[in-house]
Structure formats: structure tokens, C-alpha cells
Simulated scan of single mutants.
Amino acid sequence: MPSVADAYTVPRLLDMTQADLDTLFRESEPGPIPDGEGAGTAIVAAGTSFTPEIASFINLFAWQGKIFDAKSGLLRNRILPFGLSAIIAKVYLASSWLDEKDCIVLDYSETSLVAHWIRDEIRLIGPGLYLGKVYWGKDRLIDFALQF
């Protein structure tokens, strides 16, 4: 696997295996809490030929990304085909459930009725590019990328 210093792109992340994505996340620093709109890409079935198609489908019909307000420590997700700004999360620095090192946590437990069991964790993997992990309770679901 390439080192963290190598240039990462969303298409490159979509080609990586789950083990490679986990290693990249573990080797990365949190970076600053983002501010502004990040284009999102879901990474489902990592390392399979289906990953890019699933990502396109999700991006078109379900989730397009996140809009961060670093000053207030909140974000909103852009969802549905028309990019509705909804589903708020608190944003803060804390220990990752993956490796107990610092990460940026996107916490829905106190801000969302529909996603209160969801926790995302992100780390900076390149200029303006974050890799994220999604948890449902304590169970890992999928990965995602945010490009600013």
C-alpha cells in the first residue's frame, strides 16, 4: 500500500481494499475540523468491482456530502436527489473507536432522531481530502470520502 504522503484521490480510494482503507485511516492525523461544503462519496463493498457503481448510486439518490460550520462545531448532511441540507451532527476531536488515536468525530446522538445511533470518524489523508468511517452503535458499516 502507498504511504500516507502519496497523493490520494476519490477514485483511488474506491479501488482500495478494506484493509488498505483501515491502514490509511490508522496512519493519518485528524487534521483541522473542516469548514464549508465537502463533496461526499460512500465507499461500500471496498475492494470489489461494485464499489464505484454503489458510490454513484448513493451519491445520486441518497447522500451528496456534508456542510461543516467549524465555528459552531456542527454539520449538516446533503441528502436526497435535490441536496436537502438536513441531519445535523456535532463535530469535535476525540479518540477513534478504530484505534483510540485522535480523530474528528461527527456525532449524531444528540442532534438527530433519524440518525441518533450513527457516529462518523474522519481523518485528513491529503489536501482537502478526508477519509471517514461510519459506525451504527459500535458496529462499523462503511467508509466514505469528503473532498473540500
Rank of each mutant, 00 (worst) to 15 (best):
L106P: 01
L146D: 02
R76L: 15
A89F: 06
A45R: 07
A86L: 10
L14N: 02
Q147V: 00
G36H: 11
E100L: 10
R76W: 10
L13D: 05
Y135K: 10
L93R: 15
P81T: 08
I67E: 11
R123D: 03
D120N: 15
L74K: 13
Q64R: 12
I54A: 04
G38T: 09
I43R: 00
Y108N: 05
S3A: 11
Q64V: 02
F68H: 03
I87K: 09
F148N: 00
S112L: 08
Y135L: 12
P32W: 04
G137I: 11
P52T: 11
P34T: 06
D143Q: 02
R12C: 03
D102V: 00
D102G: 04
I43E: 01
G36I: 05
G73L: 02
L60K: 15
E53M: 12
D20F: 02
L13P: 02
V105S: 04
R78D: 07
D107W: 02
M16S: 09
A62R: 08
I67T: 10
K138G: 10
K90A: 15
P32G: 08
L93Q: 13
L75W: 00
L98I: 10
G83Y: 03
A145N: 00
G73K: 00
I79T: 08
A46W: 03
I87H: 14
A145E: 00
N59L: 03
S95R: 14
D139P: 01
M16F: 09
D143T: 01
R78E: 12
P52Y: 13
F82P: 03
T41L: 04
S72H: 11
L129W: 09
T9K: 09
G65S: 11
E53T: 10
R78I: 05
R119C: 01
P81Q: 09
G40M: 03
L106T: 05
G73S: 06
F68D: 01
T41I: 03
V105H: 01
S112Y: 10
L106Y: 04
L141Y: 06
D99L: 07
C103A: 15
L141Q: 09
D6S: 14
F57H: 13
D120I: 05
S28K: 12
G47L: 08
P81F: 14
Y108R: 05
S112F: 10
A94H: 13
G36Y: 09
P2E: 14
A5Y: 11
I58W: 03
G132M: 06
S3I: 05
V10I: 14
P34Y: 04
T48I: 08
W117L: 12
R123C: 05
D15R: 12
L60W: 13
D139N: 10
S56V: 11
L98W: 03
V44Y: 00
P30D: 11
K138Q: 14
H116T: 09
S95I: 01
T23P: 00
L141G: 12
A86R: 11
L146Q: 02
L129Y: 10
D99Q: 06
I118F: 01
I122V: 15
R123I: 05
A70Q: 12
M1Y: 07
K101W: 04
Q18K: 12
A45G: 02
D120G: 12
I88Y: 07
R26Y: 03
S109F: 09
V105K: 06
G128L: 08
G40E: 01
F82T: 10
L113S: 14
D139A: 13
S72F: 07
L113C: 07
T48C: 08
